[in-house]
């Protein structure tokens, strides 16, 4: 089996996610999702309140001010993927090394974290 480098996998995965959110999402079903449908059918949504940020610049996966539907949704998707990638990777890098020793790391040996059994 072809074994690809980690870097290659990461780049390919990111490109795929960008294509899915930026382009393929335009062709996604516009029907209500399971919860939306059931809520409307059964009346669960009678007391639904607006989202606090419903007028935000990216609300409902559209970029405010961009009127072409395909462009607006695609751009919102690309921004979302990029932002999630940045925030997620940032969080996971922080989690990986304890905040207390976030100082410049010594050469990593990938040693198994020995001792700290907490």
């Amino acid at each position: 089996m072809t074994r690809v480098r980690t870097r290659t996998l990461l780049i390919a995965g990111a490109v795929l996610a960008l294509i899915l959110a930026g382009f393929v999402s335009y062709y996604a079903s516009q029907s209500p999702d399971g919860l939306e449908k059931v809520s409307a059918d059964k009346g669960i949504d009678a007391k639904e309140q607006d989202h606090q940020l419903k007028d935000g610049p990216l609300a409902d996966y559209n970029v405010k001010g961009v009127h072409n539907e395909r462009l607006s949704g695609g751009l919102a998707g690309v921004i979302g993927v990029a932002a999630t990638l940045v925030v997620g990777t940032g969080v996971f890098r922080l989690v990986r090394r304890r905040p207390s020793d976030a100082a410049p790391a010594r050469p990593a040996h990938d040693a198994v974290d020995s001792g700290s059994g907490g």
Partner: peptide, 14 residues
């Protein structure tokens, strides 16, 4: 860690 960030972004996209 970078893979986990990618997984989050992939889940967002899908």
């Amino acid at each position: 860690a970078p893979l986990a960030g990618l997984v989050a972004a992939f889940v967002f996209a899908v």
